[in-house]
Design a protein around this nucleic acid. Structure first.
Lengths: 234, 234
DNA sequence: CGCAAAACATGCTATATAGCAGAAAAAAGA
DNA sequence: TCTTTTTTCTGCTATATAGCATGTTTTGCG
């Protein structure tokens, strides 16, 4: 058990290369001492809307969704996380409680770092500060783009876009065509701002048009160009 | 002319208090030397999607919209700026060209600061860095909330929300009821993710229900509570 | 393994919102 | 001031998408 933990920790430290490189030797040492590893099962919540943000999260293994529960039981998936990405720190810097929730799509390993330490290093280390400015700046741009896509594109365009995004973000399996993430129709709907029925229907339509092939939750992209075209024209 | 300019400059320096306070005396001096003032007429563009970001903008007087042109001629107003707020810097830190455009709702005075100077001061001054981390962190939260509101609320809810937002952001006139910003129905529609026709129709409906009173572009909020309720339930 | 629960599929209906046309009013410009 | 252009308004129609019901398949669990 002890051995297994330390292997995971070594793993984690390796994953944190991007910020490790920026930190000073002293800060690196501090990080090694304050970080913790936690594993979440499929569908388990990492944090929930309303809670006080205390940890910066860094995804080491697995897949995570960030979502908001909205009007009348509808959920919007705001962002999906892949290794190695940072999340769960924004609310702290905005002096807010979490306004989103996070849950694991599948078994996921997360490295947790106390947010006060992050803040401390930001104040000590301007490159470290710039690292987070960059992350946030990119995120604002993505969020604005998402707003326009979700509001202006039609159902087919939105679903096509989600499929393309999943391909580009999580990649494909060895066959070079099957999405390497297996989402429920509901999750796909919640990413694409539509009802589950419509996600099912539209997915079937794409399959009938030979743009994709579906085998349960497995989705194979057959005609990526058509998908791009559908996504682009809306 | 020279005198008028310097009065405006003094004005601007006063408006920049929040960042002036954070900067060191040397940096303050640098800021005074590199800043410029520019005035934009109603509907004039401050910058456009695709351009290279070179200046941080700070609105001194007036009202500005940040928007994105989307599918088939539709426009989404992403954010509206009031004095004294900073904008136009995000793209630089994300290493992108502008992905949004900015234009003046009405005659507006803007203070322009070279973005390289901002970056320099961020690297020199951790409090200054933290200032921008906070701005961006708040902006990501707003953007995520906007996504859910625009996608999940119905037309009445979205318009009600826009009206409330305009009241809270730009305030009311002396009568304590009239919005102090006069927007076209089209701008109102572009804020609320609907067609101009529907903005007009829904506005008329609100007027008929005695929730607001309309006199051309003047909008008077009569029943703020109803508006809040309509906005909340979607 | 067998059962219950969840997820998926399909068809039908209801409805919110877009789109368009034509007129009136307001604003801009000459 | 008169003319032209833009904006606002109203009504009608078209359509995209939600909502619901029902059956089937898959998944999870005791």
């Amino acid at each position: 058990m002890k051995k297994r933990d330390s292997i995971i920790l070594t793993d984690a430290v390796e994953s944190l290369q991007d910020i490790m490189q920026i930190l000073s030797p002293t800060q690196q040492e501090e990080l090694r001492h304050c970080m913790a590893i936690q594993t979440f099962k499929k569908n388990e919540a990492l944090y929930q809307e309303g809670e006080v943000p205390q940890m910066l999260h860094c995804l080491i293994h697995g897949k995570v969704k960030i979502y908001k529960d909205g009007i009348s039981g509808r959920t919007q998936i705001i962002r999906v996380i892949k290794p190695v990405e940072y999340f769960g720190y924004r609310a702290h810097f905005a002096n807010q409680n979490y306004v989103t929730s996070a849950a694991a799509f599948e078994t996921s390993t997360v490295c947790l770092i106390p947010i006060e330490m992050i803040e401390k290093w930001i104040m000590e280390n301007s490159e470290f500060a710039m690292f987070f400015i960059k992350l946030l700046a990119i995120e604002v741009g993505n969020s604005d783009q998402r707003t326009v896509n979700l509001t202006q594109k039609h159902i087919r365009g939105r679903l096509a876009e989600s499929l393309i995004f999943l391909r580009d973000n999580y990649g494909l399996e060895e066959d070079g065509a099957t999405l390497s993430i297996y989402l429920s129709r509901e999750d796909l709907a919640n990413m694409s701002n539509m009802t589950t029925s419509n996600a099912i229907r539209t997915l079937s339509a794409f399959a009938q048009e030979k743009i994709i092939a579906i085998d349960g939750k497995k989705i194979k992209i057959i005609d990526g160009e058509s998908l791009e075209r559908i996504s682009k024209i809306g």
